[in-house]
């Protein structure tokens, strides 16, 4: 009983530190999901326009980001890009985190958006064209709104991946949840396991509802056969 009270007290003591970490995790993941989705949305639409050169370039981009671990991408963007003598590429830790995570997000989103647009029945855009809409108009008014609905379930899956990937940012010294937990462990090394459990629990509380939402959305809006998770 005493040890439970003791752990509870410890938990209360640690909470402010871990909450600042969770807030950082939330901030970084939000930035990344918004910027990455916009970029991915744009690339995904470009990819459905059937221009061979554009499709190939985007394909190469996707292969590079899907073919290497995020940890390697993080090291490249954090350590290597600055060595090209370009002012624009000299990121500090936080910017490097956002940039790398956004690019990583966009590689998933591009694939989802392409699949979602292709999943909208061809007849829809043909119909739109036949009533005199331009290609852009039919995309904007007819295809994209439906594709967006279809992409909700896999997009929530991507969000979970991104939240979990932020844990790696501790390696470059961003004080997000994992890093703050490590800082706490340095002060209280005897409670290493307990602190890691608390961190895991906090990630769980953040991710689990999103996963449930994803499952619910898939029942509601249907699957397009892309499951990033």
């Amino acid at each position: 009983m005493d040890s439970i009270i003791e752990k509870y007290q410890l938990f209360i003591d640690l909470l402010p530190l871990l909450m600042t970490g969770l807030w950082m995790t939330f901030k970084v993941s939000m930035f990344a999901i918004i910027i990455g989705s916009l970029l991915g949305f744009f690339l995904g639409i470009l990819r459905t326009l059937n221009n061979k050169i554009i499709t190939n370039i985007i394909g190469l981009y996707l292969h590079i980001f899907r073919g290497t671990p995020y940890l390697v991408q993080l090291y490249l963007i954090y350590f290597v890009l600055p060595s090209f003598d370009v002012e624009f590429l000299k990121f500090d830790s936080f910017t490097a985190a956002i940039v790398s995570l956004s690019l990583y997000t966009s590689s998933y989103v591009t694939e989802i958006v392409t699949a979602a647009i292709n999943a909208v029945p061809k007849g829809q855009s043909e119909g739109a064209r036949s009533v005199g809409m331009s290609k852009i108009q039919s995309l904007y008014h007819i295809v994209v709104p439906q594709a967006l609905k279809l992409s909700i379930p896999p997009m929530s899956g991507v969000y979970v991946i991104i939240i979990k990937s932020t844990a790696l940012l501790s390696v470059i010294g961003i004080s997000e949840l994992t890093r703050q937990g490590e800082n706490a462990i340095l002060r209280l090394p005897g409670n290493l396991m307990f602190i890691y459990f608390v961190i895991a629990l906090m990630y769980f509380i953040y991710c689990y509802p999103v996963l449930r939402f994803s499952a619910w959305a898939e029942k509601r809006y249907g699957s397009i056969g892309v499951d990033p998770e």
């Binding site: 350590f79 290597v80 600055p82 060595s83 830790s93 390696v171 470059i172 010294g173």
Partner: peptide, 12 residues
């Protein structure tokens, strides 16, 4: 910076 990032940060 992370320890490994110090020298790249200076060079760049």
């Amino acid at each position: 910076y992370d320890w490994k990032g110090l020298i790249p940060a200076l060079i760049s």
